[in-house]
Design a protein around this nucleic acid. Structure first.
Length: 235
DNA sequence: GCGACAG
DNA sequence: ATCTTGTCGC
């Protein structure tokens, strides 16, 4: 058997069960390695990644779905279940969700050219959100597309699809509030790794297909939701 | 010190 | 994240 194409770069491997202060110190170190460079070529394979958690049982479900661009055809998917212990701490989401997400990624056969997450990238207290963290460890361009803000200030974007407003943090633009559907609550797009903001915004918009959320993460979200409900009804 | 706080 | 019904609008 061939090795999985989605593995953490050996030189960047690190434990996930870090105490908050150590986790934050690690984020500050990893931040120095992020690249906000434009994508070389248009991605032909994009991966949507998401996880869902069942508090009563402590079980989590993660899914990775590969889409071919620009056709938006699903190519492959993987779903896994695993217990989660790390608590939810704003700013430390990767330490809670990355382990199970990496398990789902390890089961994917094709290596995507872009990763999309239901989370932030640079729009994070230490500019190292989940999208940036995993993009860096896997060395794959990544985008954060969250449903609500974590940090930063912004003005409401226009009401039409495509309207944007910069997301500011300490005098810097760390992301963009993007209206992906007319008159619908906007999403928060930020660079994860190895891509620039204009391209991230364009790719999110091109993946929305008339929906508020990009199809890759939207489908991943539905898959983990089904997996969780299926699991609960089988108890 | 107080409030805010991805999923 | 999850708990939850109906309801408004295209």
């Amino acid at each position: 058997m061939n090795p999985t194409p989605l593995q953490v770069s050996p030189e960047l491997e690190h434990p996930w069960d870090l105490r908050p202060l150590d986790a934050m110190a690690l984020q500050r170190r990893l931040r120095l390695l992020l690249e906000e460079t434009p994508l070389e070529n248009p991605p032909q394979v994009v991966a949507g990644c998401d996880a869902s958690y069942d508090a009563p049982t402590g079980q989590a479900f993660a899914a990775v779905v590969l889409f071919e661009l620009p056709s938006m055809r699903e190519m492959e998917r993987s779903v896994v279940q695993a217990p989660i212990n790390y608590p939810y701490v704003p700013g430390l989401l990767s330490f809670r969700e990355a382990p199970v997400l990496l398990q789902a990624m390890a089961r994917i056969k094709r290596r995507p050219e872009l990763l999309m997450f239901d989370a932030h990238g640079l729009a994070h207290p230490r500019e190292m959100g989940l999208a940036s963290h995993l993009g860096l460890l896997l060395d794959i361009p990544s985008i954060g597309c969250a449903k609500s803000p974590l940090v930063g200030t912004y003005d409401e974007p226009g009401l039409n699809r495509g309207d944007c407003a910069p997301l500011w943090l300490r005098g810097q633009v760390v992301g963009c509030v993007v209206r992906t559907r007319d008159k619908v609550k906007p999403v928060f797009v930020s660079v994860g790794h190895k891509i620039d903001l204009p391209q991230a915004i364009e790719l999110v918009l091109s993946c929305c297909r008339g929906r508020k959320l990009p199809e890759p993460t939207r489908l991943a979200d539905r898959i983990v939701g089904h997996a969780r409900r299926s699991y609960k009804s089988s108890l």
